[in-house]
Simulated scan of single mutants.
Amino acid sequence: MELAIFDETKQVSPEWIKLIEDVLNYAGDYLKLPKDTEMSVTLMDNEAIHQINKQYRGVDKPTDVISFAIEENDPTEVPIILPDDDEFDLPRNIGDIMVSVDKVIEQAKYLGHSPQRELGFLVVHGFLHLNGYDHMNDADEAEMFGLQREILDAYGLKR
C-alpha cells in the first residue's frame, strides 16, 4: 500500500510510525486491497482534531479518529470522465485518516492497554471506514467491530 504519514505534532516516535505502516499494510492485505492502493494518516493533537471535528462534523470537541473517504458518493461533485480509448493505470486512493495522539494516550490509560494497541485500533478503525464499513446500526457495527478485532488479533495487537 502507498501510505503517507504526516506527524503534525513532531513528537511521534519512529516506532509508532512503523507500527502504523505495518498494521495498515497488514489490514490492506487482510482485505485483499491492490498493492497500489493509496491513503494517508495525519497525526495531530486534540486542538487540531477538535477544529476538524467542529468544521466537518459539527461536533465541538476533540475526537480520537476521523476518516475522510475519497470514494464516498457525493451528488454535488462533478465526476472525472476519462476517454474510453485511453488506458490509465491509476492507483486507488481511498482517503485520509486523522488521529489525535493525545487521545491515543488518554484512551490507552483509561482502557488499561498499551498506547500501541490503542494507536493500532484507531488506525484500523479509520481504515475500515475508508473501505466502506460503518457502525450506524447494530448489524453494521457487529460486522465492522468483528473485522476490526480479527485484524488486530491476527496482527498481534490483542487487548
Rank of each mutant, 00 (worst) to 15 (best):
E118S: 11
L128D: 00
Y110P: 03
K10A: 12
N46S: 13
K103W: 02
M98W: 08
G156Q: 08
I5R: 02
I151R: 01
S67I: 02
E15A: 15
S13M: 11
Y56I: 05
A142F: 07
S40H: 05
F88L: 15
K109R: 14
G95F: 01
F88K: 14
S40T: 05
Q55V: 13
L3S: 04
F121E: 06
I94Q: 01
D89T: 11
Q55Y: 04
D84V: 09
K32N: 15
Y155I: 05
N131T: 07
Q116G: 10
Y26T: 04
V12P: 04
L111S: 13
V65W: 00
E71C: 11
E8K: 15
K18A: 14
A154P: 03
K32H: 12
I105K: 12
P115T: 09
E118G: 05
L147R: 04
W16D: 15
M136K: 14
D153I: 07
I151S: 01
M39S: 01
V59F: 10
V101Q: 01
V123F: 00
E71L: 14
Q51D: 12
D138K: 13
A27L: 07
L119S: 02
D134L: 05
K103F: 05
N137L: 08
T9D: 08
K158C: 06
Q55S: 14
G58I: 07
L147D: 03
H135G: 07
H113Y: 14
L147T: 07
H135I: 09
L157H: 08
K10C: 10
M144C: 11
T9Y: 05
G112C: 08
V123L: 01
N53V: 05
K54G: 03
H50C: 05
F121L: 06
V104F: 03
G126R: 00
Y133K: 04
T9F: 05
V104P: 01
D22V: 08
Y26G: 04
N25T: 12
L43P: 01
V99F: 00
V59E: 14
D45I: 04
Y30T: 04
I97E: 00
G146K: 06
F145T: 12
I80S: 12
H113T: 09
L130G: 00
K158G: 10
V99E: 00
F6A: 09
A154C: 03
P83S: 13
E71H: 13
N137T: 11
H129V: 00
Q55I: 11
F127G: 00
N46R: 04
V65L: 02
Y133I: 01
I105W: 06
E141A: 14
V23C: 01
F145G: 03
K158T: 14
S13L: 12
L128G: 00
N25F: 08
